[in-house]
Amino acid sequence: MAVNSKAGGKARPLSPHLQIWRWHVTMATSILHRATGVANSVALLLLIAWICSLADGEESYASFQSLVGSPFGKLVLFGVLISVSYHLWNGVRHLFFNLGIGLSKDVASKTGWGVIIIGALGGVLLFVLGLMAAGR
């Protein structure tokens, strides 16, 4: 534990901070929820751009499609879908928390791993469904 030697010559304990704090899954899910929440702003802008291009006509829609269909566009879309999926599933976990369910250390850790895995799989599923739909 970090100590502060200045206080009256006697070493005083300081609260542990990020550098020496052991990572645990509930901490990771909380940080990821905020990070994906901010990242989802990009998803929202993409959604609006998609709808705008559709409203603007066939030409605009085609250029939007070629932009998102490019390798970089696909990479961004893949990341955004995982972000949205994780935020959605962890959001459901938070709704249960708000009802007072699943707050024990053991259950919160298990559901934490659960939403990380289901969130990632859900993003992959959406991406694959998108590729399949575009290929129809």
Binding site: L54, E58, Y61, A62, Q65, L126, L129, G130, M132, A133, A134, G135, R136
Partner: peptide
């Protein structure tokens, strides 16, 4: 609805 019901075309 979109991913299962359409081909994403214009």
């Amino acid at each position: 609805s979109i991913l299962l019901g359409t081909n994403l075309s214009y």
